[in-house]
Write a protein that binds this DNA or RNA. Sequence first.
DNA 1: TCTTAAACGGAACGATCGCCCCGATTCTAC
DNA 2: GTAGAATCGGGGCGATCGTTCCGTTTAAGA
Lengths: 194, 194
Amino acid sequence: MTEKPRPLRADAARNRARVLQVAYETFAEEGAAVPIDEIARRAGVGAGTVYRHFPTKESLFQAIVADRLSQVIERARAQTAADPGEGLYAFLFHMAEQGATDLGLTEAFAGIGFDLTEALPEAEREFTGIMADLLAQAQRAGTVRSDVDTDDIKTLIVGLQAMRRFRGDSERMRRVYPVIRAGLSVPGSAEASR
Amino acid sequence: MTEKPRPLRADAARNRARVLQVAYETFAEEGAAVPIDEIARRAGVGAGTVYRHFPTKESLFQAIVADRLSQVIERARAQTAADPGEGLYAFLFHMAEQGATDLGLTEAFAGIGFDLTEALPEAEREFTGIMADLLAQAQRAGTVRSDVDTDDIKTLIVGLQAMRRFRGDSERMRRVYPVIRAGLSVPGSAEASR
DNA sequence: TCTTAAACGGAACGATCGCCCCGATTCTAC
DNA sequence: GTAGAATCGGGGCGATCGTTCCGTTTAAGA
């Protein structure tokens, strides 16, 4: 039933790693619309080599997004272990910063030319689960208002990333993020935090 | 110095109007990436006819954005005349709704493949001016915190439109908009409004 | 109605891009 | 070192899209 995938030849393994690394950087900088030839060029290989490891451009992009997503999920998991009241906020800020760094990730989250739920349903579920945990513990701790749900948070992440990516320097983000934070805070609490 | 533009032939004027109308609808639905041939097809004309009235696709898109922008500016102006404390909030909500309706406008505001400031500097300046007015009067009325500036508001508009367009139904918006509103409100005021 | 210039539309051109093919190269096992 | 298979790379194919060209059609004035 299961096939035994013969180990890659040394040069093939090296090239595969290079392509993955370069593709990550390139999608982050230029977004999913960047031509495969550009990635191949930057990696110092031919386009054929890219296609030998990844059957379509989509599959390469998907591999990158899956990796980035697992990093982000790990980060979220780390936050659940820290201060319960601050975990969600810290994670939201982190995601806003990711939006500035990684255009590919921003597009994946926004669903621009790529359906995350369809392409990586498992990772998407996991991400949603951690978000639910972070939100629940923040609400239990009394730092986030009780009338927002997990989908609201995911929506806000898309918005935050869009703001960061399409308008603005990091200074702008540092100014706007507190507005979202204040909006999520429990009304009447000491949420006037700077 | 000034050239006398001879009046268009009747069929030419009719076609030009059709193209403008159809282009507006099509850019709103599909975004700026829609092929010119598709617009021509929907308008029932040949691609050549589109290019006779608008020398490039860019110039057609720009014409549409300029028109939409002036509508939006008019709307903002109307809000300055109404309740000073609510004007900015009403306008923000309106812009969020526009994001759901008009993908082309959303892309223009987000700067996706189109530099608004460069393409329509006059309209951009005017828009920014009205935003400054709306913000100032809301701050004077005590409904918006004093530490946000006009660029923050423009950034939030981009985010709101992205949220509305890329994630959500109108139900979702009705849930998330109040979060932004609460975040903009003066801390400690009765901003816990639903 | 007839003439003529304006306008039409869609075929065609050139550029871009995803993807494939195949002769040349390089790794690896012996 | 050598055979043979795996891998390489880049030229090429087909599709898409912006833009142009030109033979045909049509409005408008006499």
